[in-house]
Design a binder for these strands. Sequence first.
DNA 1: GTAGATTGTTAGCCTTAGCTAACTTTTCCT
DNA 2: AGGAAAAGTTAGCTAAGGCTAACAATCTAC
Lengths: 150, 150
Amino acid sequence: MTADIHVAETTSDPVHPDNRAEAFHGVRAARRSELAEDYVELIAELIHEQGEARPVDIAARLGVRAPTVTKALDRLAREGLITRERYRSVFLTEEGRRLALECRRRHAIVLRFLIRLGLDAETAERDAEGIEHHVSERTLALFAAYADRA
Amino acid sequence: MTADIHVAETTSDPVHPDNRAEAFHGVRAARRSELAEDYVELIAELIHEQGEARPVDIAARLGVRAPTVTKALDRLAREGLITRERYRSVFLTEEGRRLALECRRRHAIVLRFLIRLGLDAETAERDAEGIEHHVSERTLALFAAYADRA
DNA sequence: GTAGATTGTTAGCCTTAGCTAACTTTTCCT
DNA sequence: AGGAAAAGTTAGCTAAGGCTAACAATCTAC
């Protein structure tokens, strides 16, 4: 990266050739992990609130059907984020717990920031849900700083 | 954080039943249209910069392979956002143009906002790419206001 | 004007994420 | 304890978004 900045913008060049592609690559990567993050964060929340995370509750909160959850949980287990036994509720692995915490932190910062900025709570919640997966650590720091210094 | 502490912990309620589900629903909807928006925005850009939008350039900028672009363009055409003839470059429909403009506007606002907040240009570009699809009109207005009043 | 390079498409594969229908297991209630 | 309800799983469908390999069309340069 940084390489192609001064690559002769002569005329009808491919302009910034992979500069941009890189950004999209990053966004696509983020998109892939979003769902996993949503699940892990929600599972942590359910465990905290109700003592356990049952697929039926996950489905209800996410607004999807049970089989969708089963499949997603299989994937999370494969990826080492959760452990589970058939017909039982779900637990986070060490790594899952770590990820959940990180997500929760990001979510909280974005939410607090949006509210500080003047957004109503409900819209802030909805937007935070979407935004939290796409803010870099650097941006997050600025958000936190803004919210704190208000 | 702080939120679920005093939220009517009556007993074993389904707690906030679809309140949350709604947010996820919105996010999933946004996720579905993201790719289409990326394409349309990019196509408009290419047409503006180079006079035409060729699949090969789209692929390069997005960092994907040619057949991926062909398929995506088929979908966009089906959805009425672009028109195309085989082996020719791509044009936006009226609706496509409208969408592209809206995306461009959102992108610009988010980008300007992030930079005003103190983010470096490169990170701002990357983050804006991800964030722009998830900000409500209301948040956008606040972003714009902040950037303007600086 | 034709040969080779470039560009575009098709076919076919994989994975993810959603769904319904049908089945199994667990839980709950009498 | 036994049967109905609830929860979970499996099978099998759809569609999107990636890919490679192979083929077709277009463009370019001689």
